[in-house]
Design a protein around this nucleic acid. Sequence first.
DNA 1: AACAAAAGTTGACCCAGATCAAGGTACATC
DNA 2: GATGTACCTTGATCTGGGTCAACTTTTGTT
Lengths: 244, 244
Amino acid sequence: MNVPLRASVKCSECPIRHRAVCARCDEDELALLEKVKCYRSYQAGEVILWRGEDLEFVASLVKGVASLSKTLEDGRTQMVGLLLPSDFIGRPGRERIDFDVTATTDVTLCCFERRPFERIVHETPNVAKRLMELALDELDSARDWMLLLGRKTAREKIATFIEMLVRRSTVTDFNGVQHDLSLPMTRDQIANYLGLTLETVSRQFNALKKEGIISFSDRRRFEVRDIAALHDATGDDADGGLID
Amino acid sequence: MNVPLRASVKCSECPIRHRAVCARCDEDELALLEKVKCYRSYQAGEVILWRGEDLEFVASLVKGVASLSKTLEDGRTQMVGLLLPSDFIGRPGRERIDFDVTATTDVTLCCFERRPFERIVHETPNVAKRLMELALDELDSARDWMLLLGRKTAREKIATFIEMLVRRSTVTDFNGVQHDLSLPMTRDQIANYLGLTLETVSRQFNALKKEGIISFSDRRRFEVRDIAALHDATGDDADGGLID
DNA sequence: AACAAAAGTTGACCCAGATCAAGGTACATC
DNA sequence: GATGTACCTTGATCTGGGTCAACTTTTGTT
């Protein structure tokens, strides 16, 4: 549902309080934001924003996974961004976006009307600064992704993708070992993310499974059995690769 | 040569005065920057910054073309950014970069020592704001590029590349028709940019030539003969594609 | 429980673009 | 004007991953 709901969660108790656009805010600044925020929810598959549409709100992603994607004339599409909790949608000074934003899983957003938000950005250096950091982080991951799309083999792409999920979940969950991770999307969406077809994604997952590097408990849930072999399969050098 | 030269060009007469990081500065703010700037020159092929190296300066690109590139363990490389005059190198709050920066042609930089520059960013909202705009522009073109790398055919990649050169030169030169444009790099570097091999780049250029869409006067200089056919070959829809 | 729809797997085949190889061309240096 | 070197072109061949197609498994609905 894209019906705005008055905020039910207090900012101070928000799960993304310390990573989102509000991360650097003090209590007073937070109060400003709290006054203009509202929540919206979307079901998996729902389009959150269409390319070219006027942005009436900007938002922090609170829960779930969303994706940014671009489409060619004949319908080929490529994901150009993956949004996880604490990532931001919309940019100061931009009233349109040049890609579609779709809910990959069920999603909850913390939305701010664009105009009031831009005033706050203007008057609150801590928000402006955090927005800059978020933009630079996105730029870094866009560049890692370009290396992946331009030069990696199908196997390397899949291995890199899994490694990224492992890293992100560590950051999110604070558990040293990760067994039982879950894919946040279908094979088709993963193909879209990696510049492959769904058949190739399926084959490469199964190849890594056969080699004992990963194992699946069901279609979505898996476990990394050999993290070193997984890393070798990414093609990245020891220190390099995705840093988030 | 990477020997810093005391500024010889006055900011007020600088060719990138109105597009670079200083674009929004008033005279007083400009004076602040002028005090800490110096010029450096690099020859085509020279590495400006190595990945991982400590950034001692940040800089605006004044003249020439530079590229950002990433490398896999086995030596495959992919360009992840192309810097043209007025583009910026280095980011506030980051003391390292995760890619190499190389002079593609002879290059002149307007450099600022990192520390003093960061103080100025902190105290000059007009600089901070402009830096944000530049970062967002880079993010947009990174995303167009991801679509290109992930989903476009060799022909579409080459056509898109040429179309970008046409657009950029229009913006730079303010001449309605562009005959006699020039490639800022070798076939090898173009391949690197587009996620292709140099042989494929050569073949696709010659295919477009045979079809009468472009023509070459020498290896570097060319002319677009049929801009509509060129656009058709990019795979982008009418309004979409690279916007810079 | 039966059925339908969505998601995933597997095999056969094919082709765009990589790879390998051999020349050709333009410019710099002596 | 000869020699070297970097750059580019062109042809022959190979192959990773796309395409097409059939089938299986899971999930949701009546």
